[in-house]
Structure formats: structure tokens, C-alpha cells
Simulated scan of single mutants.
Amino acid sequence: MDHIVMLDSRQEAALQAVADRFIARHKGDAGKALKEMIVLNGHLQERLDAVEGRRRRGPPE
């Protein structure tokens, strides 16, 4: 883990609400919801890595 994020009580409540909706979307199966979140995060990380790579190389010629 690169860094730890600290949340205030308002942010924690908002995050909990989103998590509850995401789990409800998976019919209460927290394991299934977690697996989907891992896959989604993997896709997002790949896209971020690609953007970072383009920034380091500079604009296409």
C-alpha cells in the first residue's frame, strides 16, 4: 500500500452508504461484490498506468 487515507466521519458515512449499495447490487453477497471491485480497480489501474506512461514519454510525434 502506497499511503493510508484518513477519512472524517462525514466521508466515512458516505463511503459506507456507497459500499452498502454496491453490496445490495450483488444481492447481499459481499464476496461477489469484493471480487467485482477488485476487477474494476485492476482495470482502472491499468488505465492510470497507461496515462502515466504517456506523460513520461511525452506527446506522440
Results as ranks from 00 to 15, higher is better:
D29I: 00
A30I: 06
G58Q: 07
A14V: 05
Q45T: 11
E46L: 09
L48A: 04
M1R: 00
D29R: 11
R57H: 12
L48K: 09
R57Y: 01
A33F: 01
A24C: 02
G58W: 01
V5G: 01
M1T: 07
D20K: 14
R10M: 08
L15Q: 14
H3Y: 06
D49G: 02
G53H: 08
G42Q: 12
L44N: 05
V18A: 13
Q45S: 12
R57E: 14
L48S: 03
L7F: 11
E12G: 08
A24L: 02
K35W: 01
G28L: 00
G28T: 01
L44K: 01
M37K: 02
M37Q: 03
A19F: 09
Q45V: 10
V39A: 14
P59L: 15
I23E: 06
F22Q: 12
R10Y: 04
A19Q: 05
G58E: 04
Q16T: 13
P60N: 04
L15T: 13
Q11F: 07
R21V: 05
R10S: 13
Q16N: 09
S9K: 08
F22C: 04
D8C: 13
L34S: 09
G53M: 01
F22P: 02
H3G: 10
L15V: 15
H3M: 12
R55I: 15
M1K: 06
Q16K: 14
R55S: 04
V39I: 07
R55M: 12
R56E: 12
V18D: 06
G42Y: 05
D20I: 12
V5Y: 05
L48F: 12
E52I: 05
R54Q: 04
E36P: 00
A13K: 08
D20Y: 08
R21W: 00
G58P: 02
H43S: 10
A19K: 11
E46C: 04
R25H: 13
H43P: 00
E52H: 09
P59D: 10
I4K: 05
I23C: 07
R56V: 12
I38C: 06
E12F: 13
S9D: 11
D8P: 07
Q16S: 14
A33M: 06
L15R: 13
P60H: 03
L44E: 00
S9E: 12
A50R: 07
E46Y: 01
K27T: 09
